[in-house]
């Protein structure tokens, strides 16, 4: 009897030792984390354009009510590879080898040759891509800006070269689709094409762009209409005006937004920054 007891005790001891040992092996060295989340400012002064905002009819909305867009400033072009490199230099937590998986999947800055080296053959002034929403947000914070809202972006997207709202022009959507259909266009440098009515470049010809509230595009599980909002699937259900039913370019943008998650890194998805403003249009010239 006594023997049995002893052996049981010994077995327990051995097991516990092994188990505890094993766990201890797993223990990682404690890292000194000096508030790793805080964003260090990056000195990048991209020209911003004053957009007066106003009432606009969102292309796709549950309500199809007009929305008021307050005046805002928008980067005149997307953020470039070189600028993002400056950002990760100042913010090690956003380097490829350091980034937290909760913020970026494994395609983050895919093809960069290292933490601080752009992809081979990448133009420094081409738009940065393979960027998750979280990193775009952090970049914007580091330059004292923010991401544009979906409404701000779409308000600006109504403009063609000549007018602030070209949505009723037949050619408007066709021209954008022509740009959208070109593959690998994200490798071109920014500002090689003409500006729109507001003086903003590259809204359509290089990349898709993150917006702050990209996740406001619901294609299903809408709390008001129950399951499976049919809007995006049935063309006529989503568009709010007759002209918009033919606005295939807008459908493509909304389809893209509905398909992405904030930690995705995609070959042709980048971003630009925006900012609140209180200045009036008359001061625009001085910007």
């Amino acid at each position: 009897m006594k023997r049995t007891w002893i052996s049981i005790v010994v077995i327990i001891l051995v097991i516990s030792l092994i188990a505890c040992n094993k766990t201890q092996d797993d223990i990682m060295p404690v890292q000194e984390q000096n508030s790793p989340e805080s964003i260090h400012s990056t000195q990048i002064n991209t020209k911003m354009v004053y957009i007066p905002g106003g009432e606009y009819r969102p292309f796709y909305s549950a309500d199809s009510n007009d929305v008021f867009v307050a005046p805002f400033l928008m980067d005149e072009r997307p953020v470039t590879n070189q600028e993002f490199l400056e950002f990760v230099k100042a913010n090690p937590q956003w380097r490829r080898s350091n980034v937290k998986r909760i913020y970026a999947d494994s395609s983050y800055l895919k093809y960069w040759q290292g933490d601080l080296k752009l992809p081979q053959e990448a133009l420094p002034d081409a738009p940065v891509t393979y960027i998750p929403w979280f990193a775009a947000k952090a970049f914007a914070e580091s330059v004292g800006k923010r991401l544009p809202t979906l409404d701000e972006w779409e308000f600006l997207a109504m403009a063609d070269q000549d007018t602030s709202n070209a949505r009723t022009k037949k050619q408007y959507s066709d021209d954008i689709i022509n740009l959208y259909l070109e593959k690998d266009r994200q490798y071109k440098a920014v500002k090689q094409s003409g500006p729109n009515y507001w003086g903003v470049y590259n809204m359509f010809d290089l990349i898709w762009e993150w917006t702050d509230d990209f996740n406001s595009v619901l294609i299903k599980s809408d709390s008001r209409v129950g399951e499976d909002d049919k809007g995006l699937f049935c063309a006529a259900g989503g568009a709010t005006t007759a002209a918009d039913i033919l606005n295939y370019a807008a459908y493509m943008r909304f389809a893209l937004r509905a398909s992405i998650k904030a930690n995705y890194n995609i070959a042709n998805l980048g971003f630009r920054c925006a900012k609140d403003t209180i200045i009036s249009p008359s001061q625009n010239q001085e910007l």
């Binding site: 947000k137 996740n215 619901l218 904030a262 930690n263």
Partner: peptide, 14 residues
């Protein structure tokens, strides 16, 4: 908004 995006949760104030 950040937490919603971590959950891949879509929402919009209507």
């Amino acid at each position: 908004q950040e937490f919603a995006n971590v959950l891949s949760m879509k929402y919009k104030k209507i």
